[in-house]
Amino acid sequence: MIIPKKTYYKVGAALFILMFLTVAAAYLNLGPFNIYIALTIACVKAVLVVMYFMHVKYQTKVTWLFAGAGFLWIVIMFALTMSDYITRY
């Protein structure tokens, strides 16, 4: 597995840009959209880290399975935790 150095620097640069976007967006009062914007940016950053720094993009299906399992379980946990809140009204 050979990945050009440039790829890492580009991903690093993208992470910095997204970080500044997230901070800038936080200073705008967008009501409920603030949460969506912040979490969307965080998810994009997470995908970049997992795919490129953790090399999942270049890995075998077994690695995808493990990374996917971690994601699936956390989705279940959040969905069930939130079931109280989203069914209140």
Binding site: V62, F66, A67, G70, I74, M77, T81
Partner: peptide, 26 residues
């Protein structure tokens, strides 16, 4: 598995870490 053992091991560990931090986030 197509992986050396330590790599499979760390991915298992990280999956458990996801749940540890996930519990605190929820």
């Amino acid at each position: 598995t197509g992986l050396y053992n330590a790599k499979l091991g760390i991915w298992l560990f990280l999956a458990s870490e996801v749940m540890l931090f996930g519990a605190l986030f929820s």
